[in-house]
Amino acid sequence: MKNCLWEVINNKNSLSKALAEEVAVQIRFGKTKKPNVIWIEATGCSGNTISLMNADYPDLIYLLDNMINLKFSNSLMVCDGERAFESFLKTLKEDFILVVEGAVSTKEDGLFNIIANYKGNKITAYDAIKMAGAKAKSIIAVGTCASFGGVSKAYPNPSEAKSVKEVLQKDVINLPGCPSHPEWIIGTLAYIITNEKIEVDDLGRPLLFYGFTIHDFCERRVYFNNRIFAKNIGEPWCMFKLGCRGPVTKTDCPKRRWNNKVNWPIGDNTPCIGCANAYFPDGMEPFIRL
């Protein structure tokens, strides 16, 4: 934890870039192999794939060229139909990392989320995640739906959605966030690829990215300390009284920021809605108290 704290404070912004470069060097000199990755989109919005496309340093192409062999991705792979699913099946026979985004719909044995039809059989996301989860070297749940159920599991949970860990009952690294930040995803992959242990908390979240609350590093903290509070959307003060969930939400958003680091929700004069929390959205509402 001490080591982690140092890294967070001193090296935060360039960290996942540094990690990714280290991985590329190790792969080039044969110290590690480019691992296979299966990325399953389940019951969600595929927003984590979009977020991954928004990665800057390293970007999506660097990730695909230098860090991983992405073998299955519904959103991105060129092949379709049975040949696409065969790539999934073949990869199961090799070493691979499983990434899941979206919650796992279990209603009607998973038929509320079919991801393929293979030789006349409907393959549900529930089936595919169990098949791959049993053999994967490491499992990463990307986004709040995969990590904790998220919006897909919100009351009354119409698709009987569960988190990846609930379904697999194995160690899962959780990277919550709605969506997850691309650097949290690529940074975590970098650790797994180099066989370096990434420290996680009791909810499976890497301390490197989820070690502190948003409140700890918020750029508006000084207003909180001086009890200067915004009463309306758009005011530049602390939004605690508008329902900001920064004090109970652990991510490094204030320092990492979003989309080429140009902004983040609090920078846009809106409260943090706690989208990376285990109880999002049910336990985080109303998002804005006006």
């Binding site: 519904n74 959103s75 792979m77 379709d80 991801i115």
Partner: peptide, 9 residues
């Protein structure tokens, strides 16, 4: 099925 390179299933 799947029709890949789309959003959703």
């Amino acid at each position: 099925d799947p029709i890949t390179r789309i959003s959703g299933f």
